[in-house]
Simulated scan of single mutants.
Amino acid sequence: MPIAVDIDVMLARRKMSVGELADRVGITPANLAVLKNGRAKAVRFTTLAALCEVLKCQPGDLLHWEAEDASGGVLDVP
């Protein structure tokens, strides 16, 4: 998938657990895990805004685009 999710990075920087983040954002730990592991097909802007508010970050700190090659693999893009 060309959109990568960096929630783990922000959790580590904030020394916060997945359970605590899920609680504070108002979503289930299972739904947060789906998003965190890149298996989500979509994310609501309200959820993204809540994540940014709790983690005190910008959406670009949580999501970034990675180019895919013709075979569907991810290319290394700086």
Rank of each mutant, 00 (worst) to 15 (best):
D69G: 13
L48K: 10
A22P: 03
M16D: 04
R13I: 03
K15M: 05
M10H: 09
L21T: 06
L32T: 05
E53C: 04
G73S: 12
N37R: 12
E68F: 01
C57R: 04
I7E: 05
I7S: 02
T46S: 15
P78C: 07
L21P: 04
I3H: 03
T28C: 06
L21R: 03
N37S: 11
V25R: 01
N31G: 11
A4G: 00
E53H: 10
L62S: 08
R24E: 15
A70K: 11
N31C: 09
E68A: 08
S17D: 05
I7R: 01
W65D: 08
K56Q: 10
G38C: 12
A4E: 10
D76R: 14
G73A: 15
L35M: 05
G38N: 15
D8Y: 05
D61K: 01
R39D: 09
A4F: 02
M16Y: 00
P78V: 13
T28H: 01
L55Q: 06
Q58K: 07
P59S: 09
L11S: 02
E66Q: 07
P78A: 09
P29L: 01
I7Q: 01
S17K: 14
A4Y: 03
G72L: 08
A70D: 06
A33G: 14
P78I: 06
V25S: 07
R24W: 03
V77L: 12
K36W: 04
S71C: 04
R44Q: 15
L11F: 01
E66V: 14
L11R: 05
A33H: 10
V43T: 06
D76F: 14
P59V: 02
D23K: 13
E20Q: 14
L75A: 07
T28D: 09
C52P: 06
A30R: 13
E53S: 07
V74M: 12
K41F: 05
V18G: 12
V5L: 02
R24Y: 02
V54Y: 00
E68L: 10
S71N: 07
A70M: 12
P59G: 13
A50K: 08
L63C: 04
L75F: 05
T47A: 07
G60A: 07
P78N: 10
M16E: 00
M10T: 03
M10Y: 01
A4Q: 13
R44A: 15
D8S: 13
S71R: 09
S17R: 07
L62E: 02
C52E: 07
A30G: 08
A30N: 06
V43K: 03
M10P: 00
I27M: 11
T47M: 15
G72H: 02
L62G: 01
A12R: 13
V9N: 14
G73D: 13
V34E: 11
